[in-house]
Design a protein around this nucleic acid. Structure first.
Lengths: 237, 237
DNA sequence: TTCAAAATATGACATTTGTCATATTTTCAA
DNA sequence: TTGAAAATATGACAAATGTCATATTTTGAA
């Protein structure tokens, strides 16, 4: 999995650390992490960890984009979360002492660092503030998950599609042109995020395009009309 | 909200504490909690806290049953979680420093204790093991939430109904007769758990009854055929 | 007990969404 | 460049589910 040519940058000056749960830890703790971490880069489509495996630590996303997904009964994938720079992945199962309940796959060229389990647990022991950071991260993930439950149970597919597109725009932002989404997912992947069939996702995207809410530039989606999408998503406030 | 006649039991010998995240804390910490807690009992239907309010602490369930629910756009409720003896509720928003994102309502006569925010945070400061308990609790909730996302997105209503009934049986158990479910929810509440219309929930329950998977005893549901329900829920292993 | 309100039940129907078949287009490796 | 495989697109149809109307039953307060 690891490659010789992967660079091992210094945690102390790591840019993504400042955005992460490690932003407030003491310098000597940073040192310990730096000495024990292992960095690696992933191509689009490469898997970081798989459902059912045992975690030995957690992964910090340095740059790039990751999807967290689970396999359903009929072999259909379901995306449950995303991660980007400064996010931590694979920590839930590790903290709970369980097997991974989901898989993580790069959806773009991604660079990650691996931090071993024992380093994390000793950090929890020593630094209450770090625990609070972890607790807040879990809380935030739980909040989003429960919001997804509400929307999957109550919103029709069209609304969820509009909402998912706006979510992806928030999550990964736009390219410098101000309209093209930075993240590029296949129609099938979008379907597994929205929770619908691929054909339905394709139809809805075409519909949004014909209504001038979106446009397509190659595989990339451009957001043309945010207020229009908010309206379709039934989001007001 | 609080009533004079509520008994204030001693945390040290509290039966539900042994089943809770407070099971391993030091005696003097128990003392502090005991001095600062406030206990209260709730009738079926009484609300413990409401979406949008600010949390000032967390609630420990002593005895009884609680549902955690959110309001959808069309004013339809969605149950996202349940709590029972030894569980802690209202902690997510408190830990994240946010408003409640969901409401909590007793679905049975319930006795709870309130523990102020500052007591919890100082416990996190002092006791790393308590932090780990909290982290594991959040992890477990997150795992279940992500499982719900998968099932809502991919399983048909009939499967989810069977699964929900089996879940309620696991969660709250059966009465001494070995078949009657301890928890009693209205058809409407069951529908908001499964994520479907009340009429659909009623039809499915009748169907299960006619297939001899269930029977009704007044408002209570009796589980007649667990293997049959597992089959309908499409659960194997 | 009695009655109104709430909960449960059921039918008829419309709508949404998924599935299957089949084009068409795009991508990527040889 | 070229061709096969994958991705996208679209139509036709079936199945699942929601909605509305309306009984029927149960519950709980007066």
């Amino acid at each position: 999995m690891s490659k010789k040519e992967d660079i091992q940058p210094d945690c102390e000056h790591c840019h993504s650390r400042y955005k992460s749960i490690f932003c407030q830890i003491a310098p000597d703790e940073v040192k310990i992490i730096n000495e024990n971490k292992w960095c690696q880069s992933l191509e689009k489509g490469q898997q970081l960890f798989a459902e059912g495996a045992y975690p030995h630590g957690l992964f910090c996303v340095n740059t790039g984009k990751i999807k967290i997904h689970q396999m359903g009964d009929e072999g259909r994938e379901q995306i449950v979360r995303f991660a980007k720079e400064g996010d931590v992945v694979g920590y839930r199962a590790m903290l709970a002492g369980e097997k991974y309940s989901s898989s993580a796959t790069a959806i773009d060229t991604t660079s990650i660092c691996f931090i071993p389990k024992n380093v994390i647990f000793s950090l929890i022991e020593k630094d209450a503030n770090f625990s609070i950071q972890l607790i807040k991260l879990l809380s935030s993930n739980l909040k989003h998950a429960e919001e997804s439950i509400l929307h999957l149970a109550q919103k029709p597919v069209r609304e969820r599609m509009a909402e998912s597109l706006l979510f992806l725009k928030e999550m990964y932002g736009l390219e410098p042109d101000g309209i093209t989404m930075s993240v590029s997912l296949s129609r099938e992947e979008i379907a597994t995020l929205v929770g619908t069939a691929t054909e339905t996702a394709i139809r809805l995207l075409s519909e949004f395009k014909s209504k001038k809410l979106l446009s397509f530039e190659g595989r990339k989606i451009q957001i043309i009309d945010v207020p229009g999408l908010l309206k379709v998503a039934n989001i007001h406030d």
